[in-house]
Simulated scan of single mutants.
Amino acid sequence: MTDTLPDIEVRGQRRREPAEPFPERPEPVVFEGQHAELDPNIGQELDPCADPATALDWNADAAAAEAKREFERRAADMGDDGLYTREWHAYVYQNASGHMYLGPVSYGPPMGGMVTPNTSGMTPDNLIGSVHNHPGGSMNPSGSDWQGFDGLHSWVSAYAGTARADQMRLYIIARDVNDPNSQMSIHVFDKDSNRNSDSPAEDVNPDGQPCP
């Protein structure tokens, strides 16, 4: 009898272990010659951008990566020590056509460990999640982070439905404080994430790009 390994669900542009490569979109399948008549959609089920359900995670992760780059750019303009000086925050929104974009970026005082999010333009129908950094803290959400997430989840659920609310993501940018050589990385959470502060988080590709 041959043992079969369980399927591992790949969501978004994420890896479970630091040594793993980040997921990549497959190259398009092109049939030529005697195979030219084959269905060009063969193999497209492997492309996360081919299905709106999987494209949502892919594009949300890309928006989080964009937020990290934007935070770093602005931090450099202000003369900060990367993302170690202050807390930065932005919401991730999705318009009616499915395109994801960042809301206004806000930041806190140096070494203050806090930031007041800018909710301009937020509606229950466009909110996908939020991105912020922990300058010197945990890679996992704090208690207040979860409290804020739960409040927004309830708000979206009440006005746009539970299914819409369950699409929300919480992204934390932080380094592993147990590893002095670690760099700032992006970690993703949702309503079903283990809220144990010691549980490992999925790592998001900082160079992630959205679906074309």
Rank of each mutant, 00 (worst) to 15 (best):
S142A: 13
A62Q: 10
G33A: 10
R175V: 03
E9Q: 14
V156D: 02
E87F: 08
Y171S: 02
E32Q: 07
M184D: 09
A55E: 03
G137S: 14
V177W: 10
S106Y: 09
A158N: 11
A50H: 09
M122R: 15
S199N: 08
M1Q: 08
R69H: 13
S138N: 14
H89L: 00
S157V: 01
P23W: 10
K68L: 14
P110L: 10
R74C: 00
D190A: 03
Y159F: 15
F31T: 04
F31H: 10
A50F: 11
A163R: 03
M114L: 01
S193F: 02
N178P: 00
S144C: 00
S157A: 15
H134W: 07
G161F: 04
D77W: 00
M1I: 03
R175H: 12
W58V: 04
A65R: 09
P28V: 10
L83P: 02
G12K: 03
L127C: 08
N133P: 08
Q147P: 00
L56S: 09
L56Q: 07
R73C: 01
P21E: 14
D145W: 02
D207F: 11
M122D: 09
W88D: 00
F149Q: 03
Y84Q: 10
L38A: 14
A19F: 15
A201P: 07
P23A: 05
Y107F: 15
P26G: 06
T4N: 05
P18C: 13
L127W: 05
F189N: 05
P18R: 13
D145C: 08
S144Q: 15
Y101A: 05
Y101R: 09
P141H: 06
G143D: 13
F31C: 00
D80A: 06
D57V: 00
